[in-house]
């Protein structure tokens, strides 16, 4: 890593500032196999109840028999540079951090769902009611793990910022050290996901963007997603 950045980094880590960073994710569509491990790992780690998902891997079928293709596209909050959700949110519960991560403060959200409608990536889930996988029976695990849910508020991917914050305090590098990396990234069995600092020219994510062709979803809307996709590679 660039020494200057490294030095800056060390100071920023210490006083908890994050201005110099811009976290982003790279998704290699050649490697994703639609297994949904990321989806379930995220759900389990964050204790998300039924139908609340922060990352969905959707399929897209293209063409007509017999010339058909199917793509697997992992979708989560894009942590936009110009987040529509932040512009919509009347309470200010949705915020953008200096390091690019867009978060929701559960205690501030009033559940109006404007953010959800304006998000071009369907990245948000509303928690409408108290829901259980096993509604008729008591389940200790669900009782404990869903305590953090607030019915009537919004949920979405937050790039596991707690992992990142906790770890950067310990001088770990997000994207490199598993402890400091989002849970979906370290769980992905296709190793299709990369996470890191887009501002650091030597991070894996920056290097991948340098080396490989990439695109972002709905770029024309000007939202400036922090998630880049590497297109599917095909050998003919």
């Amino acid at each position: 890593m660039n020494t200057f950045i490294r030095q800056q980094r060390e100071t920023t880590c210490q006083d908890g500032l994050t201005e110099l960073r811009h976290y982003g994710m790279i998704i290699d569509l050649t490697k994703c196999l639609g297994c949904q491990t990321c989806t379930v790992a995220c759900k389990l780690f964050h204790g998300l109840g039924p139908d609340i998902v922060r990352v969905r891997v959707v399929e897209q079928e293209l063409g007509q028999y017999p010339d058909v293709e199917r793509l697997y596209i992992p979708l989560r909050c894009m942590h936009c540079d110009e987040p529509e959700c932040v512009k919509a949110c009347p309470t200010g519960a949705t915020k953008k951090r200096p390091d690019g991560i867009v978060t929701i403060d559960r205690d501030e959200c009033m559940g109006c769902r404007y953010c959800s409608v304006v998000c071009p990536y369907h990245a948000r889930s509303f928690i409408p009611v108290e829901k259980r996988y096993f509604p008729e029976s008591d389940n200790h695990w669900e009782d404990v793990r869903y305590r953090q849910h607030q019915v009537g508020t919004m949920d979405k991917c937050d790039f596991c910022h707690e992992r990142i914050d906790r770890a950067t305090d310990r001088m770990l590098e997000p994207g490199e050290d598993p402890e400091a990396t989002p849970i979906c990234v370290i769980s992905c069995i296709g190793k299709a996901l990369y996470f890191g600092d887009l501002n650091d020219p030597e991070s894996t994510v920056s290097r991948l963007l340098e080396e490989r062709e990439s695109f972002r979803l709905k770029e024309d809307l000007g939202t400036g997603p922090s998630i880049y996709y590497l297109p599917r590679r095909k050998r003919k």
């Binding site: 309470t91 200010g92 009033m110 109006c112 769902r113 509303f126 607030q150 019915v151 009537g152």
Partner: peptide
């Protein structure tokens, strides 16, 4: 609203 009691936050 999901959280009626917080309606006033809408003005923030």
């Amino acid at each position: 609203l999901g959280r009626m009691e917080r309606f006033w936050r809408g003005l923030l």
